[in-house]
Design a protein around this nucleic acid. Sequence first.
DNA 1: AGCCATGCACCG
DNA 2: CGGTGCATGGCT
Length: 118
Amino acid sequence: MIDILCSLTYLSCGRVVTPLFQKLLSASDADLTLSRLVIPKKCAEAYFPRLSGPHKIPINILDTDGKEWNFHFRFWPNSRSKMYVLEGLRDYMVSKKWQAGDVVTFYRIEPGQKLVMG
DNA sequence: AGCCATGCACCG
DNA sequence: CGGTGCATGGCT
């Protein structure tokens, strides 16, 4: 996981975004059967919607082409902590040909808090 | 201390 | 018997 300095950026689709963080995809992140992405805890709590309990919430995220994707965001209770995951990525992973070792970058559309993943 | 990659029990 | 939902353990 790599933190990024906050600097406004234009995506190829024309949107103005702030880069938030990147993640190097692990083998399990890239596993099509699991089709879920572990979100580093500090990034999840800083940039993702607040979760009031251990239930998934729907979350709409754009890719860098501006296409909308519907995922679910939740955490797993873990012995005295939490692990945050983004679920339902199967179609996205197939479409983007995600592989372990790839890097995914999260952005926030400015102004607002809508997320972009690409 | 505790994150996070992955193991794995158990439920349908 | 494939996936969910959490546990485990290597690592820092």
